[in-house]
Amino acid sequence: MENEHTAAQAEIVASELFSEFFWNKLGPTNHDWPCEEQELHQVKTHPCDVVYYYDEPYAARQTYVHCDLKSYAKGSITSLALKVAAESLARQVACAERSEEWRKLHTQDHVTFIVSGLLFVYNHDGEYDKDFNSSLIGITPESLQLPRGSRLFILGPKEIFWLDNVRDEIQRMRGKKNAEIPQAEFCSYFHPQLIRRANLQVKKAKAATLETLTSPIIILEHSDPRGSAKRGVVVFYGRAGESADEFMYLIDTLRKYELLDGRTDVVVKTLDASRVSSPMFEKAKLQYLEGLAGSTTDLGDYVRQIRYEPMSHIKTSYSNIDLGTWS
């Protein structure tokens, strides 16, 4: 399944990826810690690849993400392998919440927190082309037996490819001579003010949450380093963009999030979208304008100014030779 060097590939990808989404590491990596339920779990220790944390936007607490980082070749990504890994990770999450040693190693003092699990399935040969979700059918809430309130997320090869391209695009936009976005200190991931869930930590919660990273819309917001009221918004949209209705819904979502105004520059980015996505986006803007009380309104101007830019994709790969398999 994995050896030391293929496993290292998943660690490198995850580290580069999550740092761009403002996750922080805390504690040692690749270590074992005592199981709190040895009879039930039938093990004496649990493994820990790495733990990340971020501030929650809708609650005054932190989320600690206990990760199992897998680096599999195409043929090793099977339903059985994923089920075994997910059930093992669920046991780790259940014990982490109760373990004094885990808390001592991986959490900050005097902080309210929750623990979530993340199964990160990286395809190191880049050849996996099956329906990943169909391989998850055998993983059920009953088989995981997570504690109440705990959650387990799974990122497969397709999702990691998407997120890695978002990361690369952000770095490209920031690194240009005439940078399109400023340095990280002026950036944050957008969390809307929801009717039933107010964003309680607007300034503190800059990171993309697990929910954000597993949704079709990731919004990066950036302020003007010179201190003006201007702001920029980059909307990374993970769907195909095959119809105008699809993009009309996206535009209306941006309106509801109050991201369309006179001080905000908005650009929508897609990856491997439909070949008709560009004309569909323009059609959506026209149809959205037709639905307004008057296309000469301020909102009409803001909709016209939204830009659409398909991204060129990259594929991150690492050679086992580079990672030291040859001597």
Rank of each mutant, 00 (worst) to 15 (best):
E2S: 08
H5M: 09
H5Y: 14
H5N: 10
T6A: 08
A7K: 15
A7C: 09
A10T: 13
A10N: 13
V13C: 12
S15L: 14
S15G: 13
S15K: 11
L17G: 02
F18S: 02
F18W: 13
F21L: 12
F22Q: 03
K25Q: 15
D32M: 08
D32V: 07
P34H: 04
Q38T: 07
E39R: 04
H41K: 00
Q42C: 09
Q42T: 08
T45G: 00
D49M: 10
V51W: 11
E56L: 05
A59H: 02
R61D: 00
T63C: 05
T63N: 07
Y64H: 12
D68Y: 09
L69G: 11
K70H: 08
S71R: 05
A73L: 11
S76P: 03
I77P: 05
L80C: 06
L82R: 06
A86Y: 04
V93P: 00
V93Y: 01
C95M: 04
E97H: 08
S99W: 04
S99G: 01
E100Q: 12
E101A: 03
E101T: 10
K104E: 07
K104L: 03
D109N: 01
F113N: 07
I114Y: 06
L118I: 12
V121N: 15
V121W: 14
N123Q: 13
G126I: 11
G126A: 14
G126S: 14
D129F: 09
K130Q: 14
D131R: 15
L136I: 10
I139A: 06
R148W: 14
S150C: 15
L152Y: 12
L155P: 03
I160C: 03
V166K: 00
R167A: 10
R167W: 10
E169M: 07
I170V: 12
Q171A: 02
Q171R: 06
M173C: 06
N178L: 06
A179V: 07
E180M: 04
I181T: 00
I181S: 00
E185Q: 09
S188Y: 12
Y189F: 15
R197H: 13
A198I: 09
L200W: 05
Q201H: 11
V202A: 13
K203Q: 14
S215N: 14
P216G: 06
P216V: 05
L220A: 10
E221V: 11
E221A: 14
D224L: 11
V233K: 04
G238H: 06
R239Y: 09
D252Y: 11
T253Y: 10
R255Q: 08
E258D: 14
L259Y: 09
R263N: 13
V266Q: 01
V266K: 00
V266R: 00
K269S: 01
T270G: 03
L271Q: 00
D272G: 06
V276F: 01
P279K: 03
M280G: 01
E282H: 06
K283V: 06
L286T: 10
L286G: 09
L289I: 10
L292M: 15
T296Y: 15
D298N: 14
L299H: 09
G300S: 11
V303W: 13
E309S: 12
M311F: 00
I314Q: 13
T316P: 01
S319E: 06
L323G: 01
G324E: 01
